[in-house]
C-alpha cells in the first residue's frame, strides 16, 4: 500500500509540469467557458425560444456533452494513456523505475490509477464548471430562468456514467502505449476505434456495446431518450455498456501488468 501511494505521488510529481496533467484542468475550463460565452453572446436568440428552465439547462449541458462525450473524451483518454507511459519511454526510465525497491505491481498500478484519476478530475471539473458557469450565466443574463431548476444530480450522475464508460478505452489505450513507444500507433488505432465506436453507436448496432470505443457514445445516445422524461436525472448508471466497459477495464488491467513486467527487461 505504501509502495502504491509513493508511486502515485511520484507520478504526480513527474507529470505536474506536463500538458497531460494540465489538459485535465484546461480542457473543461476552455470548453465550458466557450459554451457559456456562446449562450451569453446569443442570449437574445435563445430567449426568443422561451425554453422552460429544465429544457434550457438541458440545452446548455448538452452543448458541452455533445462535443465532449463523442470526440474529446475518447481523444483525451487516448492522449492521457499515451503520455503517462511515454514519460518513461522517452527518457528510457522503465528499467530504473523497476529497479527501485518497490513492489512492481504497485508501480504499474500507480501509473494506471494516475490516468484514471486524471480522467476523473477532468470529468468532475466538467460537471462542476457546467453548474458554476450556468449560474454565472444567470447573473450575466438575468432574463434566463436557469435558477428555477437544479441540474446538479443529473450532472453528477451523467458525468459519473461517462467516466465509467471511458475506462474500457483507457485500458486498451494504456496497453497500446505500454507496448509501443511512438505516438502514431496507439493514436492511429485509437482514432479508428473512436470513429468505429461513434458509427456503431449511432446506427444502434446490436453488438455495439462490445466495442469499448462506442461506450461514451452509447451513454450519450441513451441520454437523448432521457430528455423526454419528466425527471431527467432518473436513469440507470450501470447499464449494459457500463458493465462491459468495467469488465474490459479489469481484464485488460491485469493483462497489462504481465506486459509491463516483461517490458522492463529490454
Amino acid at each position: 500500500m505504501r509502495s502504491l501511494y509513493i508511486s502515485l505521488f511520484s507520478e504526480f510529481y513527474k507529470s505536474r509540469k506536463t500538458l497531460a496533467f494540465w489538459a485535465a484542468i484546461i480542457l473543461p475550463v476552455v470548453i465550458c467557458g466557450l459554451i457559456t460565452f456562446g449562450f451569453y453572446s446569443s442570449s437574445e436568440k435563445i430567449l426568443a425560444m422561451h425554453y422552460p428552465p429544465m429544457l434550457l439547462w438541458l440545452r446548455y449541458i448538452g452543448a458541452a456533452l455533445g462535443v465532449m462525450g463523442v470526440l474529446i473524451l475518447p481523444f483525451y483518454v487516448i492522449f492521457m494513456a499515451f503520455s503517462v507511459n511515454n514519460i518513461e519511454h522517452k527518457n528510457d526510465t522503465w528499467k530504473t523505475l523497476f529497479a527501485q525497491p518497490l513492489n512492481k505491481f504497485s508501480i504499474y498500478t500507480a501509473k494506471y490509477l494516475y490516468a484514471v484519476i486524471l480522467i476523473f478530475i477532468c470529468l468532475f471539473l466538467f460537471a462542476v464548471l457546467t453548474l458554476a458557469f450556468g449560474h454565472l450565466l444567470q447573473v450575466l443574463v438575468p432574463k434566463y430562468n436557469l435558477n428555477e431548476f437544479d441540474p446538479s444530480v443529473l450532472l453528477i450522475k451523467f458525468y459519473f456514467k461517462l467516466f465509467l464508460s471511458s475506462l474500457g478505452i483507457l485500458s486498451i489505450q494504456f496497453i497500446l502505449s505500454l507496448v509501443w513507444a511512438d505516438f502514431l500507433k496507439p493514436m492511429g488505432i485509437g482514432f479508428v476505434g473512436t470513429i468505429m465506436g461513434i458509427i456503431t453507436a449511432n446506427v444502434s448496432w446490436k453488438y455495439a456495446y462490445l466495442i469499448p470505443y462506442s461506450h461514451p457514445s452509447l451513454v450519450l445516445s441513451s441520454s437523448t431518450a432521457v430528455k423526454k422524461l419528466k425527471n431527467p436525472a432518473d436513469f440507470e448508471i450501470f447499464t449494459q455498456e457500463v458493465w462491459t466497459s468495467l469488465i474490459f477495464a479489469v481484464v485488460l488491467f491485469i493483462i497489462g501488468y504481465f506486459i509491463a513486467s516483461r517490458k522492463s527487461i529490454k
Binding site: 530504473t96 527501485q100 525497491p101
Partner: peptide, 27 residues
C-alpha cells in the same frame, strides 16, 4: 544503487527535481 547504460533522467524535470523524485520513491 545503480547506473545502467545511459543515466535514466526525466528530461523535462530539473536535476534537483529528478533527485527529489528519487527521494520520494525511496522514502
Amino acid at each position: 544503487g545503480a547506473l545502467v547504460e545511459q543515466p535514466a533522467i526525466y528530461g523535462h524535470l530539473s536535476g534537483k527535481e529528478n533527485l527529489n523524485n528519487r527521494c520520494l520513491l525511496l522514502g
